[in-house]
Design a protein around this nucleic acid. Structure first.
Lengths: 220, 220
DNA sequence: GCATAGTTCAAGCGGTCGTTTGAACAGGAG
DNA sequence: CTCCTGTTCAAACGACCGCTTGAACTATGC
């Protein structure tokens, strides 16, 4: 069984980008959980595809749900980092609704759709988990993006002073839902749809759609 | 075991609205599948809650998936009927985008949210199945609403002659997604949100949101 | 009464689930 | 070499899965 040196030790003279069992498990978990959902995917299916023993899951993570939690955390980390960075930057001035919407959507779609097959797998995974049938799984995703949520809401409210707070919250929920929808549709190309060929078109169209709805579609 | 007369025979002199085993199974299936998803809900959990034997599922429906199929068909029937009725009516003239959006959203939210607890259960069930993690389950929902889809798309295109066909399709997908989102959130009241108290407000807000997005947010 | 068709039942089928176990294996430190 | 720690392994655990069986029960038609 070809395995490599452990992470704790000193690195080899040349960087060897061999995946550890832990990384392989997370990669396959992203792919399978995003494809069949949490309940619909067995640990055995994951470990076989990751060329790992079944017990490796419990050794590295502790349980199936802990594996999912780790996968969600890893997938969301760069998205959250980028969102925080953009929010920090925007909060210096008086951002428009479009700037805020862009700061929310683009890290979710660009960061993730522009990176080829692997990025699309991550996108689908995030989108599916965010709307998993089970409340417990959804909470797991919510916990991961919770800290940013309140910052966005108050920034949006400031950018839309004429809109009622419930309307801003309503718009935010819709923005979140549509982002998750298009993330979860990554990898499921429907022939003839323009967005499939150019992911950046999808982001622009979604942003335009949301900007119009926020500007004209929220009651005072 | 208190059971009632069979449907095949003559009715009693007074109408006895006692549910058959078949109906109880469908009712509980709506509730549980909408709560835990298809994979996350066992037949045993359903049959226990329906006070039925587990073999009753296979006797009345044939399999777990066939039970789901029957539940989806029954839940969608009145929504589809109402949508067809409204489309027939609108296609006589030259409907505006708002009229078309209303004809799509209201049967999905009104018909289903205005009928108390039971209607909300049905709404959640439909919304969840429409975006189930498993492709096979989603197809099952799609098959149920497929015939109407093309009629809506061409009516929308006619009402928005300046918009590109891909944009109309994009807007339709978003409309479908947002409807399913708010349907699936039925029964999960978040305190302080205005729409929770008055479901008709939710429909109006969603329609206003979508109308604005369709009118100003689609590229030519 | 008796046969018949429709429905319900307890019990069990083979299979898969998430998790656990205890031994084997690897590499570094003393 | 000998510990020691971290990792992987085959095997098995009990529980639960969807589904089937064959008998019992019920109401109706003759």
């Amino acid at each position: 069984m070809p395995e490599q040196a452990v992470a704790g030790g000193k690195e080899n003279s040349v960087e060897t980008p061999v995946e550890t069992t832990r990384e392989r498990l997370l990669n396959v978990a992203e792919q399978r959980f995003g494809e069949g959902g949490y309940e619909g995917t067995s640990l055995r299916a994951i470990t076989v595809a990751a060329a790992a023993n079944i017990a490796a899951v419990n050794y590295h993570f502790g349980s199936k749900e802990a594996l999912l939690r780790a996968a969600v955390a890893r997938a969301m980390a760069p998205v959250n980092t980028e969102r925080r960075r953009r929010l920090d930057q925007l909060e210096a001035g008086s951002p428009t609704p479009e700037q805020l919407i862009r700061a929310f959507i683009e890290p979710g779609l660009d960061l993730v759709l522009r990176r080829g097959e692997r990025g699309a797998v991550v996108a689908r995974f995030i989108g599916r988990i965010a709307f998993d049938p089970s409340q417990r799984i959804r909470d797991l995703y919510a916990a991961e993006s919770d800290p940013i949520e309140s910052r966005y809401l108050s920034a949006l409210q400031a950018a839309l002073p004429q809109a009622a707070p419930e309307s801003v919250a309503f718009g935010y929920v819709n923005m979140l839902g549509l982002l998750a929808l298009h993330q979860s549709q990554a990898l499921s190309r429907t022939p003839g749809v323009a967005e499939d060929e150019d992911p950046s078109k999808l982001a622009e169209n979604l942003i335009a759609f949301l900007v119009a709805a926020f500007d004209k579609g929220l009651r005072s």
